[in-house]
Design a protein around this nucleic acid. Structure first.
Length: 352
DNA sequence: TCTGGGGTCCTAGGACCC
DNA sequence: TCTGGGGTCCTAGGACCC
């Protein structure tokens, strides 16, 4: 099963202010009378009636519905609600794989022996999430992760959708290929060029041609197109990297502005690392220029968790590699190669 | 029309070690 | 004078997901 929260960020806001529910409401960047930068993170169904959707530039959303409620992103609140939701779901499954802040797979195949029972079980979970976390969700039910995810799209809003194993292949055959997990705009273009513009055609494609043009993911995609996905639901509670980035209100080439931002982002990253109880081995600086091209530069460091190390490395990467004169749109700082203190301590004890 | 911020995984070359 | 095969780590960039 794939449990996917409905219009999650706005639904969270509606708990605090129920009156938002009947009106078009958007969580995302500040619209600034249509001059704001950034995008719609989430919007509720009343807003969708005006053609607004997540990922849309906030300026465009403002044009479509200037008197909608535009709310800023309160990420830590949504994280808290997410934890509540995950705790509820966890009671219903021996294993839970959280995909994002508002989505999780569970695997209940060992304890459920019919499609009817599975649907009843999903309804129970949906009701429990609604009652205890006070948030709506939709649940896709099938015999593998790929199809459960696809089913969840058809469950929305606030529903349960079952796709039986024997229906799977037929269910997806007329979809565009980018409805499959792992097919984005680039891969879709390549598939189109090969003449595979629907999932059904991809299902009948020549595998060696796919591998030739796409690499080993060609095999996965061919399986997906046939409704086949052997991947397991796996607990994934280990964080691999921690980063913060921000887009400037105006593109800038002023060193002072950029460096101050790097310092601020570094402090946030450092605080987050401490919160997780991890040190890191690599610091990466990301620069996005006005034309949207991106430059990443990284530096390996001795394992550390200090903000000063993040700042000094990120700033020196900036000084060394920033292409002078080019205006920067966005700056980002990330640490990776994370080591948690406990394992470090264990290793230390072992070595001593 | 104007494109966020949080991530993951993969590929590929170079340096280095034994 | 010409040089293998196994491996790890570092760095850069691309594609993708929500």
């Amino acid at each position: 099963m794939l449990i996917d929260m409905d219009y999650f960020f706005v639904a969270c806001e509606e708990i605090k202010r129920p009156e938002l529910a009947d009106k078009p409401t958007i969580v995302g960047a500040e619209p600034k009378e249509g001059r704001g930068r950034g995008v719609v993170m989430t919007c509720n169904y009343p807003a969708r009636k005006f053609g607004i959707h997540s990922g849309m530039p906030i300026s465009q959303a403002y044009k479509l519905k200037p008197d909608a409620n535009f709310l800023p992103v309160d990420y830590s609140y949504y994280e808290k609600k997410s934890e509540e939701v995950m705790a509820v779901i966890r009671e219903y499954s021996p294993v839970l794989e959280q995909v994002s802040i508002d989505e999780a797979f569970i695997d209940v195949s060992d304890s459920i022996d019919s499609y009817e029972a599975a649907v009843r079980y999903a309804e129970r979970i949906k009701n429990a999430v609604k009652e205890r976390a006070r948030l709506p969700c939709s649940i896709g039910v099938s015999t593998n992760k790929l199809m459960a995810k696809i089913a969840s799209d058809f469950a929305k809003p606030n529903g349960v959708k079952l796709i039986r194993e024997e229906e799977a292949k037929d269910f997806i055959k007329d979809f565009a290929t980018d409805k499959l997990y792992g097919v984005g705009s680039k891969t879709k273009e390549k598939l189109d060029a090969m003449g595979y513009d629907t999932v059904g055609k991809l299902a009948r494609a020549n595998i060696s041609e796919l591998v030739d043009k796409l690499g080993t993911i060609g095999i996965d995609l061919h399986n997906y197109a046939n409704g086949i996905d052997e991947s397991q639901v796996i607990e994934n509670n280990v964080v691999k990297s921690i980063g913060r980035e921000k887009t400037f209100e105006k593109d800038t080439s002023e060193n002072k502005t950029v460096i101050e931002s790097i310092e601020e982002l570094s402090r946030e990253v450092g605080a987050e690392a401490r919160r997780h109880g991890v040190s890191f081995k690599t610091v990466t600086l990301k620069m996005r220029y006005s034309d949207f091209s991106e430059q990443l530069r990284s530096k390996a460091v001795r394992p550390t968790d200090s903000v000063a190390d993040i700042v000094s490395n990120a700033v020196s990467l900036y000084s060394a590699y920033h292409e002078k004169g080019r205006k920067i749109r966005k700056i980002g700082v990330r640490v990776s190669g994370l080591i948690d203190y406990k394992s470090q301590k264990r290793l230390g004890e072992y070595l001593s």
